[in-house]
Structures are given as C-alpha cells and as structure tokens.
C-alpha cells in the first residue's frame, strides 16, 4: 500500500509533492539548456575560433539564430536554463488555480512578479539608460 502510494507520488503530475510535475520539467529544461549551450560553444570554436563574450538580448537572439550564428545557440541555452525556475513558478501558479489553492496562487504570483520586476530594474534605476 505504502509502495503504491509512493509510486503514485513519483509519477502523478498532480501529486502534492510535485505540483505540476516540476521535477520532470526541470530534468528536461536542464538537459536541453546544457546541450544547446554546449552545441553553441562547440560551433563557435569550430567555425569562428573564439567564444562571443556577451549574451544576445532576447530580441537579438532570434535574428542571430536565423542568420546561423552559433553564438546565438549558446545564448539560447543559457536563456533556457534561466527560464527553468520561471516555468516552475508558472506551473505552481497554474496548479494552484486548478486546485483552488489561493495561497499557492498568491505566493507564486508574487514571486513571479518579483522576477519580472528584476528584468528592467537596472534600466529604471539608471533613468532609462
């Protein structure tokens, strides 16, 4: 009985231990992120001979990808990794909505808001510079 319950917790995406199947999502995101970033670095070293130091912006990365720049793959891999915890929060938020858990919705919503605020905060502090 206990084993059956444990198996359920391990596989059921609606398990209270793993709301929204975040564990599986994390495994996928980390694997894809590191494979894409590594492919980008290998491509850069092979084709260009050096690694582009800076990250592409979210807007620039798609243009660079379309033009076949391998450094865009490296940036994309890093962005995918950074997006992992954000996707987890979205998953907890959505799971909370479905389960009508106001606490989970409220708290994950606030943390998501803090993360969204962290993106433009430097620009704000520098007066739009």
């Amino acid at each position: 009985m206990k084993q059956a319950q444990r198996d359920k917790n391990h596989t059921d995406p609606s398990s209270p231990y793993d709301p929204g199947g975040v564990g599986g999502l994390y495994r996928l995101v980390s694997l894809v992120g590191i494979v894409v970033a590594s492919a980008g670095v290998i491509g850069e070293l092979h084709l260009v001979g050096e690694i582009r130091r800076g990250l592409w912006s979210l807007e620039g990365v798609s243009t660079a990808l379309l033009s076949g720049d391998p450094s865009a793959l490296t940036t994309l891999g890093i962005w995918i990794l950074i997006a992992g915890p954000i996707m987890a929060l979205l998953s907890v938020f959505y799971h909370g909505l479905r389960q009508r858990s106001s606490t989970a919705v409220f708290l994950s919503g606030i943390v998501l808001m803090v993360i969204i605020l962290s993106i433009p905060i430097k620009t704000w502090l520098q007066g739009g510079g």
Binding site: R6, N9, H10, S15, Y17, D18, P19, V22, G23, G24, Y26, R27, V29, S30, G33, I34, L81, I82, G84, P85, V92, T103, A104, L107, S108, V111
Partner: peptide
C-alpha cells in the same frame, strides 16, 4: 540555476521538497 534544476528534479520526485514552505 543549473545545479538547482538538476538537484531539485530528484528531490521533487522523491517528495522531499516542501513547495509551499519554499513559496
């Protein structure tokens, strides 16, 4: 971030993470 994704995926599926406390 990368280390957390890899470690958490195992801990979450073992039911060790208290997601509500984390939030």
């Amino acid at each position: 971030v990368l280390n957390s994704l890899r470690g958490s995926s195992v801990y979450l599926q073992r039911g060790l993470v208290n997601v509500k406390l984390a939030m």
